[in-house]
Design a protein around this nucleic acid. Sequence first.
DNA 1: TATATTTACTTAATCGATTACGTAAAGCTA
DNA 2: TAGCTTTACGTAATCGATTAAGTAAATATA
Lengths: 340, 340
Amino acid sequence: MKNISMKHLAKALNLSTATISKALSDSYDISDETKQRVLKLARELRYIPHAQASSLRGKKSKTIAMVIPEVADSYFAQAINGVEKIAYADGFHVLIYLTHEQLEREKAILKELLNGRIDGLLISVTRQSEEAYHINELVAAGLPVVFFDRIFENIGRGEVTTNDYRASYLLTEHLIQQGCRNIDFLLFSNALSIIKTRLEGYKQALLDYGLIFNTENLIVCSNHDQENERLIQYRLGHKNRPDAIIASVEKLVICTYHACALKHLSIPETIKIAAFANLPTASILQPPMTTITQPAFEMGQAAASLLIKTIKGKSVDPAETKVIIPSKLDLRKSTMLYTT
Amino acid sequence: MKNISMKHLAKALNLSTATISKALSDSYDISDETKQRVLKLARELRYIPHAQASSLRGKKSKTIAMVIPEVADSYFAQAINGVEKIAYADGFHVLIYLTHEQLEREKAILKELLNGRIDGLLISVTRQSEEAYHINELVAAGLPVVFFDRIFENIGRGEVTTNDYRASYLLTEHLIQQGCRNIDFLLFSNALSIIKTRLEGYKQALLDYGLIFNTENLIVCSNHDQENERLIQYRLGHKNRPDAIIASVEKLVICTYHACALKHLSIPETIKIAAFANLPTASILQPPMTTITQPAFEMGQAAASLLIKTIKGKSVDPAETKVIIPSKLDLRKSTMLYTT
DNA sequence: TATATTTACTTAATCGATTACGTAAAGCTA
DNA sequence: TAGCTTTACGTAATCGATTAAGTAAATATA
């Protein structure tokens, strides 16, 4: 990997590296003739400026990090897409780090990110993250941090979320209107801000429609698919079994469908199913599933834009630092009223 | 972002930066006492070595790039997972670049990667990539390149693939055994090595079972879902309509299911469907779909391992540079013989 | 005791690009 | 023509970490 450096160009043209540098950046105090000569040779020798060197000198790496819980989840995959689009357009590079929902891993990753490698950070925290000490450290050091989806409020330089509360409310309302009276809510840990919000929207809808929220309706799942499947099956065997299930997380969709199949409960006749999910296959499931589709791509774009603006030191209107992009309620057969 | 540098430590301890550097790297010619003092202060001041500076000096960035066509595809999402796992364990950072299946974008991205930013490259080429000139340039410059899934043969330092030929053969054989005699094969462009291989496996199975391959059986799709859906629908309205469809790419599954639904052809009674796909939802589709599941995670891991070994300069046994990890044929209802 | 070796550092160069500052030559003004 | 400005470049420092080479003091060897 012996690349052409400015030194090579300088020697070949009998100039100093300073002149080369200025010529390449089109500085006013280099003659047009010299600029042409430098550019020509640079092209011929395929000169490529050395990233680390410029970074070191210029105190900017043109790189941002995206720290997310996982990637094999449609939401995050689409969010990456949005981030990459904006970053690429602005000449930024994107580092990906996966926490696998583990706080310790999140801490370890962030600790390394204060080393000049990145100019800014996009993060969606783990389910275990309850306090923001480790993130605050980066913020305190002056690193621009933008949260998306799973946020800590008022810590970083921006937050991009969706209207989880309202979406959840609307979905619950829809189920009630389809005749459901005993709606279960599947969730992981309720520490996560978005899950809390979704839960509240759900509860409020129940309240507004005169339904009673029962703690039995809350099914707290773990990271183990099989265990979750058993948990849901058990609940479906209950005498007071639900007539609808809302999966607050995409990951829980598959075990829910499986559990219903194993218990021979037909969707939507006996039980209705809906989920917060970005599954491209939602429309070809058995039956097609009603989802709250989060604007993952758009959220990724918004978060990246906000971060890059901040990095560039543009004054960002405080009103712009909290972006909320609405989710879409996609009604499908899994929640349709069954009329004989 | 004013971080603590070695200079700070040096001044505080009345030592030279050289001593600090050596103390931190536990060099033999620094006294234990001094090492302790340095380490203690470094910890107290939360000294973090500056990545660009070490990179510049040490000619290594501890970063690899992963260039893939897209991320909102289960295969690549899972592959990222595998890559990140290995990279993280070895202290490597992962840059993500999306080509969106555009050769021009691929070229533009690669051009930038010769700037010292990365120590190695993992790539799965676009559907448009027919010649490897742009990749060869990196290889010629000495950058370790490992291909995975979509490869150019014998160019880089390694190739990680799956047994597409055999998997395709087995799937086709399975369909024939289920009574199919007119099997369509959906594909994008046939320039792509893996698609070619899959196509050959399919053709060979037809041949071995005395079936005739007809060019009508080849449906060449584009990047537009709606157009593809129409294409398939049209084919399904044909007098010689297929009794089975193999989607050689995950992306084509949804339009295939939709087209069948719109034409009121029931799966698997009237038509059988199978696909090369890593959809986690395959088991809850309507009906559950037979898939060839590629070992995406494992392939990501293998590719990253191979790349990192090469970067570290370990002599890699030539036999190890071509890794083939078998796919799994997951039989489900969508291809099951329908018996009344 | 004179010399050799070891110990524990420091000096200074280096990686490659950038930039404040310096300067020689040319051009301009009075 | 003396003095000023402009043009077009070079010198050297800098970013932060690393390392070959140098050195003074302490210790060991003959």
